[in-house]
Simulated assay, not measured.
Amino acid sequence: MTENHLIDLREVTKTYGSGPAVLAGIGLRVRAGEALAVLGPSGSGKSTLLNLIAGLDRPSRGSVTVGGVRVDGLTETASAKYRRSRIGMVFQFFNLLDDLTVLDNVLLPAQLAGVPRTEAAARAAELLAHLGIDRHARAFPGRLSGGERQRVAVARALMNRPPLLLADEPTGALDTASGADVRDLLRELNADGQTIVLVTHDLALAEACATRTIELVDGRIARDVAAVRR
Protein backbone atom coordinates (compact mmCIF):
# COMPACT_ATOMS: atom_id res chain seq x y z
CA MET A 1 0.00 0.00 0.00
CA THR A 2 1.31 3.42 -0.92
CA GLU A 3 1.99 5.37 2.28
CA ASN A 4 -1.23 6.87 3.69
CA HIS A 5 -3.31 5.61 0.75
CA LEU A 6 -6.10 3.44 2.10
CA ILE A 7 -7.55 2.79 -1.38
CA ASP A 8 -5.45 2.22 -4.50
CA LEU A 9 -7.15 1.38 -7.81
CA ARG A 10 -4.91 0.91 -10.83
CA GLU A 11 -6.12 0.74 -14.44
CA VAL A 12 -9.45 -0.74 -13.35
CA THR A 13 -11.79 -1.75 -16.16
CA LYS A 14 -15.14 -3.47 -15.69
CA THR A 15 -17.22 -4.93 -18.48
CA TYR A 16 -20.26 -7.19 -18.44
CA GLY A 17 -20.44 -9.61 -21.34
CA SER A 18 -19.88 -7.96 -24.70
CA GLY A 19 -21.26 -4.59 -23.58
CA PRO A 20 -19.29 -1.35 -23.28
CA ALA A 21 -16.99 -0.82 -20.33
CA VAL A 22 -18.83 0.35 -17.21
CA LEU A 23 -15.46 1.49 -15.87
CA ALA A 24 -12.67 2.17 -18.33
CA GLY A 25 -9.12 2.26 -16.99
CA ILE A 26 -9.85 3.98 -13.67
CA GLY A 27 -6.92 5.03 -11.51
CA LEU A 28 -7.85 6.29 -8.04
CA ARG A 29 -6.07 6.70 -4.72
CA VAL A 30 -7.82 7.73 -1.53
CA ARG A 31 -5.90 8.70 1.59
CA ALA A 32 -6.87 7.61 5.08
CA GLY A 33 -9.10 10.28 6.61
CA GLU A 34 -10.50 11.58 3.33
CA ALA A 35 -14.21 11.88 2.62
CA LEU A 36 -14.58 11.21 -1.10
CA ALA A 37 -17.84 11.97 -2.90
CA VAL A 38 -18.42 10.15 -6.20
CA LEU A 39 -20.76 12.04 -8.50
CA GLY A 40 -22.01 11.33 -12.00
CA PRO A 41 -25.12 10.58 -14.04
CA SER A 42 -26.95 7.27 -13.83
CA GLY A 43 -24.95 4.56 -15.58
CA SER A 44 -21.62 6.33 -15.16
CA GLY A 45 -20.15 3.52 -13.02
CA LYS A 46 -20.55 4.98 -9.51
CA SER A 47 -22.13 1.95 -7.84
CA THR A 48 -19.84 -0.42 -9.74
CA LEU A 49 -16.86 1.46 -8.33
CA LEU A 50 -18.24 1.10 -4.81
CA ASN A 51 -18.90 -2.61 -5.32
CA LEU A 52 -15.32 -3.20 -6.50
CA ILE A 53 -13.90 -1.46 -3.44
CA ALA A 54 -16.22 -3.55 -1.23
CA GLY A 55 -15.18 -6.79 -2.90
CA LEU A 56 -18.75 -7.44 -4.05
CA ASP A 57 -17.58 -7.47 -7.66
CA ARG A 58 -14.26 -7.96 -9.43
CA PRO A 59 -12.62 -5.89 -12.16
CA SER A 60 -12.23 -7.33 -15.62
CA ARG A 61 -8.74 -5.83 -15.64
CA GLY A 62 -6.62 -3.90 -13.17
CA SER A 63 -6.12 -4.10 -9.42
CA VAL A 64 -8.08 -2.98 -6.34
CA THR A 65 -6.08 -2.65 -3.12
CA VAL A 66 -7.64 -1.52 0.18
CA GLY A 67 -5.58 -1.27 3.34
CA GLY A 68 -2.83 -3.30 1.74
CA VAL A 69 -5.22 -6.10 0.71
CA ARG A 70 -5.56 -7.04 -2.97
CA VAL A 71 -9.34 -7.18 -2.91
CA ASP A 72 -9.66 -8.37 -6.51
CA GLY A 73 -7.69 -11.52 -5.71
CA LEU A 74 -9.67 -12.69 -2.67
CA THR A 75 -11.68 -15.89 -2.55
CA GLU A 76 -15.38 -15.58 -1.68
CA THR A 77 -14.68 -16.61 1.92
CA ALA A 78 -11.78 -14.18 2.27
CA SER A 79 -13.86 -11.45 0.62
CA ALA A 80 -16.63 -11.90 3.19
CA LYS A 81 -14.08 -11.74 6.02
CA TYR A 82 -12.57 -8.59 4.46
CA ARG A 83 -15.97 -6.87 4.46
CA ARG A 84 -16.69 -7.89 8.06
CA SER A 85 -13.41 -6.53 9.37
CA ARG A 86 -12.47 -3.64 7.10
CA ILE A 87 -15.62 -2.24 5.46
CA GLY A 88 -18.77 -0.62 6.81
CA MET A 89 -21.60 -0.21 4.31
CA VAL A 90 -24.61 2.14 4.37
CA PHE A 91 -27.35 1.83 1.76
CA GLN A 92 -30.11 4.05 0.44
CA PHE A 93 -32.90 1.90 1.87
CA PHE A 94 -31.17 1.07 5.20
CA ASN A 95 -31.27 -2.76 4.77
CA LEU A 96 -32.19 -3.24 8.42
CA LEU A 97 -33.85 -6.45 9.61
CA ASP A 98 -37.37 -5.48 10.65
CA ASP A 99 -37.83 -8.47 12.98
CA LEU A 100 -34.77 -7.51 15.05
CA THR A 101 -34.59 -4.62 17.51
CA VAL A 102 -32.33 -1.66 16.86
CA LEU A 103 -29.79 -3.10 19.29
CA ASP A 104 -29.80 -6.53 17.66
CA ASN A 105 -29.40 -4.98 14.19
CA VAL A 106 -26.33 -3.10 15.41
CA LEU A 107 -24.92 -6.19 17.14
CA LEU A 108 -25.23 -8.39 14.05
CA PRO A 109 -21.83 -7.64 12.42
CA ALA A 110 -20.04 -8.35 15.70
CA GLN A 111 -21.87 -11.64 16.09
CA LEU A 112 -20.89 -12.65 12.56
CA ALA A 113 -17.28 -11.76 13.35
CA GLY A 114 -17.30 -13.82 16.55
CA VAL A 115 -16.85 -10.88 18.93
CA PRO A 116 -17.69 -11.85 22.55
CA ARG A 117 -21.21 -10.76 23.54
CA THR A 118 -20.09 -8.55 26.44
CA GLU A 119 -17.56 -6.69 24.28
CA ALA A 120 -20.06 -6.33 21.44
CA ALA A 121 -22.80 -5.04 23.76
CA ALA A 122 -20.46 -2.38 25.16
CA ARG A 123 -19.50 -1.26 21.65
CA ALA A 124 -23.15 -1.14 20.54
CA ALA A 125 -24.14 0.93 23.58
CA GLU A 126 -21.29 3.34 22.85
CA LEU A 127 -22.38 3.75 19.22
CA LEU A 128 -26.08 4.16 19.97
CA ALA A 129 -25.31 6.83 22.55
CA HIS A 130 -22.84 8.63 20.28
CA LEU A 131 -25.35 8.68 17.42
CA GLY A 132 -28.20 9.81 19.65
CA ILE A 133 -30.42 6.76 19.22
CA ASP A 134 -29.79 4.87 22.46
CA ARG A 135 -33.39 5.52 23.57
CA HIS A 136 -34.52 3.38 20.62
CA ALA A 137 -32.35 0.36 21.47
CA ARG A 138 -35.33 -1.92 22.21
CA ALA A 139 -37.55 -0.56 19.43
CA PHE A 140 -38.02 -2.17 16.03
CA PRO A 141 -36.85 -0.28 12.92
CA GLY A 142 -40.37 0.13 11.54
CA ARG A 143 -41.23 2.47 14.41
CA LEU A 144 -38.37 4.88 13.62
CA SER A 145 -38.18 7.80 11.22
CA GLY A 146 -36.08 7.52 8.08
CA GLY A 147 -33.29 9.59 9.58
CA GLU A 148 -33.26 7.46 12.73
CA ARG A 149 -33.16 4.26 10.69
CA GLN A 150 -30.20 5.56 8.73
CA ARG A 151 -28.43 6.35 12.01
CA VAL A 152 -29.04 2.73 13.04
CA ALA A 153 -27.57 1.62 9.70
CA VAL A 154 -24.50 3.79 10.32
CA ALA A 155 -24.10 2.34 13.82
CA ARG A 156 -24.27 -1.17 12.38
CA ALA A 157 -21.71 -0.25 9.71
CA LEU A 158 -19.29 1.07 12.34
CA MET A 159 -19.76 -1.83 14.77
CA ASN A 160 -16.51 -3.61 13.93
CA ARG A 161 -14.50 -0.37 13.73
CA PRO A 162 -13.85 -0.57 9.98
CA PRO A 163 -11.20 1.76 8.56
CA LEU A 164 -13.47 2.47 5.57
CA LEU A 165 -17.13 3.47 5.42
CA LEU A 166 -18.90 3.10 2.06
CA ALA A 167 -22.21 4.91 1.58
CA ASP A 168 -24.43 4.40 -1.48
CA GLU A 169 -26.97 7.25 -1.82
CA PRO A 170 -27.34 7.50 1.99
CA THR A 171 -29.84 10.38 1.77
CA GLY A 172 -31.68 9.14 -1.32
CA ALA A 173 -34.73 7.80 0.56
CA LEU A 174 -34.94 10.58 3.14
CA ASP A 175 -36.94 13.78 3.43
CA THR A 176 -35.12 17.11 3.52
CA ALA A 177 -34.81 17.33 7.30
CA SER A 178 -33.64 13.72 7.70
CA GLY A 179 -31.21 14.15 4.82
CA ALA A 180 -29.67 17.16 6.55
CA ASP A 181 -29.38 15.11 9.73
CA VAL A 182 -27.46 12.36 7.93
CA ARG A 183 -25.24 14.94 6.21
CA ASP A 184 -24.27 16.34 9.60
CA LEU A 185 -23.60 12.85 10.92
CA LEU A 186 -21.28 11.90 8.04
CA ARG A 187 -19.43 15.17 8.36
CA GLU A 188 -18.92 14.59 12.10
CA LEU A 189 -17.67 11.04 11.49
CA ASN A 190 -15.11 12.26 8.98
CA ALA A 191 -14.01 15.04 11.33
CA ASP A 192 -13.31 12.27 13.87
CA GLY A 193 -11.03 10.56 11.33
CA GLN A 194 -13.36 8.11 9.58
CA THR A 195 -12.49 7.53 5.92
CA ILE A 196 -15.64 7.71 3.81
CA VAL A 197 -16.44 7.04 0.17
CA LEU A 198 -19.97 8.03 -0.74
CA VAL A 199 -21.88 7.74 -3.99
CA THR A 200 -24.54 10.39 -4.36
CA HIS A 201 -26.67 12.52 -6.66
CA ASP A 202 -27.12 14.96 -3.76
CA LEU A 203 -24.84 17.92 -4.40
CA ALA A 204 -25.64 19.38 -0.98
CA LEU A 205 -24.42 16.14 0.61
CA ALA A 206 -21.18 16.24 -1.36
CA GLU A 207 -20.58 19.91 -0.59
CA ALA A 208 -21.27 19.43 3.13
CA CYS A 209 -19.39 16.17 3.71
CA ALA A 210 -16.66 15.67 1.16
CA THR A 211 -13.05 16.73 1.38
CA ARG A 212 -12.67 15.66 -2.24
CA THR A 213 -15.05 15.06 -5.14
CA ILE A 214 -14.69 13.02 -8.31
CA GLU A 215 -17.14 12.93 -11.19
CA LEU A 216 -17.54 9.85 -13.36
CA VAL A 217 -18.67 10.19 -16.95
CA ASP A 218 -18.91 7.14 -19.22
CA GLY A 219 -16.79 5.08 -16.85
CA ARG A 220 -13.93 7.55 -16.58
CA ILE A 221 -12.95 10.18 -14.04
CA ALA A 222 -13.86 13.48 -15.69
CA ARG A 223 -13.15 15.65 -12.67
CA ASP A 224 -11.15 15.26 -9.45
CA VAL A 225 -11.08 18.24 -7.12
CA ALA A 226 -10.48 19.04 -3.49
CA ALA A 227 -13.74 20.22 -1.97
CA VAL A 228 -14.28 23.38 0.01
CA ARG A 229 -16.67 22.58 2.82
CA ARG A 230 -19.26 25.15 3.74
Score class of each variant (00 low, 15 high):
Leu189Gln: 07
Gly45Lys: 15
Leu9Phe: 01
Val66Ala: 01
Leu174Asn: 06
Gly55Asn: 03
Leu52Phe: 12
Asp8Ala: 15
Asp224Leu: 06
Phe94Met: 03
Val12Glu: 00
Gly193Met: 07
Gly142Lys: 15
Arg212Val: 07
Ala124Ile: 02
Lys81Thr: 10
Leu144Asn: 04
Leu96His: 13
Thr77Tyr: 08
Pro41Ile: 13
Pro141Val: 06
Glu207Trp: 06
Arg135Val: 07
Ala121Leu: 14
Ile214Cys: 02
Arg151Asp: 02
Met159Thr: 04
Leu100Pro: 05
Val102Trp: 01
Arg220Tyr: 07
Arg183His: 08
Arg149Asn: 07
Ser18Lys: 11
Ser18Gln: 12
Leu131Gln: 07
Arg187Thr: 14
Ile214Met: 02
Arg229Ser: 10
Ala180Val: 09
Asn51His: 15
Glu148Asn: 00
Thr200His: 04
Gly88Ala: 13
Glu215Ser: 11
Ile26Thr: 06
Arg220His: 14
Leu205Thr: 15
Leu198His: 10
Val22Pro: 06
Ala35Pro: 04
Ala222Trp: 03
Gly147Arg: 03
Asp134Leu: 11
Ala129Pro: 05
Arg31Pro: 08
Arg70Asp: 14
Ala121Tyr: 09
Met89Glu: 12
Val38Trp: 03
Leu39Trp: 11
Gly172Glu: 00
Arg123Pro: 00
Leu56Val: 02
Ala54Trp: 11
Ala204Gly: 07
Asp224Lys: 12
Arg123Cys: 05
Arg31Leu: 15
Ser47Arg: 10
Glu3Gln: 08
Ile214Thr: 10
Asp134Thr: 11
Gly67Pro: 01
Gly142His: 08
Leu165Asn: 03
Leu50Trp: 04
Leu128Ser: 00
Val217Thr: 09
Thr77Asn: 15
Gly19Arg: 09
Ser79Asn: 03
Gln150Ser: 09
Thr171Cys: 04
Val64Cys: 05
Thr13Ala: 05
Arg135His: 10
Leu131Gly: 10
Ala121Gly: 08
Glu76Asn: 14
Thr65Lys: 08
Gly33Ile: 09
Lys81Pro: 07
Asn190Lys: 13
Phe94Cys: 07
Gly25Lys: 05
Leu103Glu: 13
